[in-house]
Design a protein around this nucleic acid. Structure first.
Length: 321
DNA sequence: AAGAAGGAGGTTA
DNA sequence: TAACCTCCTTCTT
């Protein structure tokens, strides 16, 4: 791994960059064990002992979907972490039917977890596509789309500036580059390659399972009708902010609900939110001064207002979700 | 210093 | 024409 602290090929890192340290520490604990990679770089499910604690560590208030997935946390002592797999029953030795059943249950649980993780990764990609107005398949990206994706990835995962190194490259050009090319391009080239790899895997998966994809898109009610029905219509700032708010496990570090029922939200990182908006609108000079001016234009229109008790960087949707 | 408020003119789809 | 974008001044935190 060329970049200290970054675990490439990990969807857990991809979706949860603020858990890098924890995950890195965890990886240190198990660095002698190298799981086989599957789709999205997930370890294969035949490797349960090390896999589960990872989700437990991700299960924070910022990752409610992980909490949903694992349900009641299993006490660490009960997890078979780093415990050798039970050895196969020797001929003539009676297999304990109870442990066999537990094994099957565990396997089913793990399959469900993997399905949900993959689903969440696909949703995250779907969200990014809609926010950026780009195709989900990197092969379809124009040079401009590549720049948008690079800028977005840089800012979302706090990577150093990478976009200047891939000027004039289309998505197809980017996909034709080997991991080594990425590594040579930048200190964080391997991280970027891992991100791209996940997008490509997702696109390949969508191609294989178009029905599942359309089903998940239909189930996702977090997008306003105006975006789903008119995908090429320009997104409004208020819609953009709302979509960031509806994806707290991705964007809570820059914008979060203070009171979702009342529609009150706080911009935690004004520069970051402005940058994301600037990427979306192809306005490199966007800053919070300009973004806030646009928000204030909503006062007269009755879309956003300041809450009754005015606070810095806190606004309120007039019509809450 | 950073943010809030709002006027005014410009740009884009 | 709407929805910003940009720049600006003045005031507040």
């Amino acid at each position: 791994m060329g970049s200290p602290g970054y675990a490439a090929h990990s969807p857990l890192y991809i979706s949860h960059p603020h858990h890098i340290d924890t995950r890195a520490a965890w990886l240190d604990e198990v660095e002698d064990v190298k799981p086989p990679r599957s789709l999205f770089g997930l370890p294969e499910l035949s490797w349960p002992g090390v896999y589960l604690p990872c989700y437990e560590r991700l299960a924070t208030e910022e990752n409610p979907w992980v909490l949903r997935m694992i349900g009641t946390p299993t006490p660490p002592a009960a997890l078979p972490s780093r415990t050798p797999e039970p050895s196969p029953a020797k001929p003539g030795q009676a297999q304990d039917p109870r442990s066999e059943m537990e094994g099957q249950v565990e396997e089913r649980c793990l399959e469900q977890v993997q399905t949900m993780v993959v689903g969440e990764v696909l949703k995250d990609i779907d969200t990014a596509c809609k926010l950026l107005n780009i195709a989900s398949d990197p092969l379809d990206w124009s040079c401009g789309d590549v720049q948008k994706w690079l800028l977005w990835t840089e800012h979302l995962y706090k990577l150093p500036q990478l976009s200047t190194m891939f000027q004039q490259l289309s998505g197809r050009d980017l996909c034709s580059m080997a991991e080594a090319d990425f590594k040579h391009s930048s200190q964080f080239g391997d991280v970027l390659y891992a991100h791209l790899d996940i997008w490509r895997s997702a696109a390949a998966m969508k191609e294989r399972c178009p029905t599942e994809d359309s089903k998940s898109a239909a189930d996702d009610d977090s997008w306003p009708d105006v975006i789903c029905k008119y995908p090429n219509q320009p997104i409004h700032l208020w819609q953009f902010l709302r979509e960031l708010l509806l994806k707290p496990h991705n964007y809570s570090r820059c914008i979060r609900w203070v009171n979702k029922e009342k529609g009150i939200f706080k911009i935690e990182d004004s520069a970051h939110v402005a940058r994301l908006w600037g990427i979306r609108k192809n306005r490199p000079a966007m800053n919070y001064d300009k973004l806030s001016r646009s928000i204030r234009q909503y006062y007269k229109k009755g879309i956003i207002r300041k809450p009754d008790v005015s606070r810095r960087l806190v606004y309120q949707f007039v019509n809450p979700v």
